[in-house]
Simulated assay, not measured.
Amino acid sequence: MNQLEGKIAIVTGASRLKGIGAAICRELVKNGCHIFFTYWTEYDKSMPWSMESTEPARLKEELAEAGVKVSCMELDLTRFDTLKQFIDKVSEDVGAPDFLINNATYSTNNDYSNLTAEELDRHYKVNIGATTLLSSEFAKRFKKKVGGRIVNLTSGQFQGPMPGELAYATTKGAVDALTITLAAEVAPLGITVNAVNPGPTDTGWITEELKRYLEPMFPFGRLGDPSDVAKTIKFLVSDDASWITGQIINSEGGFKR
């Protein structure tokens, strides 16, 4: 029997068809989950990889072809005052959620010499502020007593330094601390909390030059694919992972920095 059949998942940050968020949605839908995903086109359009405005609608249409309930909305995660209403909408559109996948992230290059308070605040609000508050709201509303799952996306900040990404490394590193403590707090509610570090993943941002530099660091001779992390998350939300909580899983194909 499919363990995920009929479960309801929230996936944040699924703006781009090539992204990790979209891959997570596809994997969960393939296994019978109903999905509510968020996106924020303003951010992705400002990045070098950019995106097409139609991508979220195309993803929704693709997912719905599996015969599950699918809904989505554009959500600015820096607006903390809207997060409770967001969870309300999830329940109205697809039902009370079983899983929360905190995939959305904010990342720009900076170091000690050019970091500003404004840029640090943007990283904080999305990477740790929204992740913490959404997780808290999810936990407060979870009444099913068993099978609740929160999965956070991190990036291996404690695997080694990330020069040139000071704000990103600082705020995503805090996600690891959140994961460990929140897991202990919400276990009595029937919720597990884990984080996944997928390592360098080819979602369209990696140039050919960077790809040639990174590939020798992977013993399998290739970069991570979005489907790799999606399958890890599928396992973590399943009943088979009910005894796994408070863990930071470095699922990065043996990547050596």
Score class of each variant (00 low, 15 high):
Gly32His: 09
Lys145Leu: 05
Ser91His: 09
Glu52His: 13
Ala9Ser: 14
Asn103Gly: 09
Gly67Arg: 02
Phe37Ser: 07
Asp88Glu: 08
Leu178Val: 08
Ile233Phe: 06
Lys211Tyr: 07
Val90Lys: 03
Thr54Arg: 06
Lys7Arg: 15
Val70Phe: 00
Arg222Pro: 04
Ser135Thr: 09
Leu100His: 03
Gln157Trp: 09
Asn110Met: 00
Thr232Met: 15
Val70Gln: 12
Arg149Val: 02
Thr192Ser: 14
Val90Cys: 06
Asn102His: 06
Pro188Ser: 05
Lys144Ser: 06
Val90Asn: 01
Ala96Trp: 00
Arg122Asp: 08
Ser50Leu: 12
Thr131Lys: 10
Arg122Glu: 08
Met51Gln: 05
Glu5Leu: 14
Met217Phe: 14
Gln3Ser: 12
Asp44Trp: 13
Ser107Trp: 14
Glu165Ala: 13
Ile20Ser: 05
Asn109Trp: 15
Leu4Glu: 05
Ser251Val: 10
Glu52Gly: 09
Ala184Asp: 12
Pro97Asp: 04
Val146Phe: 13
Ser227Arg: 10
Lys211Glu: 11
Lys211Asn: 03
Val90Ile: 12
Ala66Arg: 12
Val126Lys: 00
Phe255Arg: 08
Ile101Cys: 04
Val196Phe: 01
Glu62Asp: 10
Ile191Pro: 03
Pro200Leu: 11
Gly21Tyr: 07
Lys18Tyr: 04
Thr41Tyr: 07
Leu189Cys: 04
Gly67Pro: 03
Ile8Asp: 00
Val237Tyr: 07
Ser53Val: 03
Asp76Tyr: 01
Cys72Met: 11
Thr131Ser: 11
Trp243Leu: 14
Tyr39His: 15
Val11Asn: 13
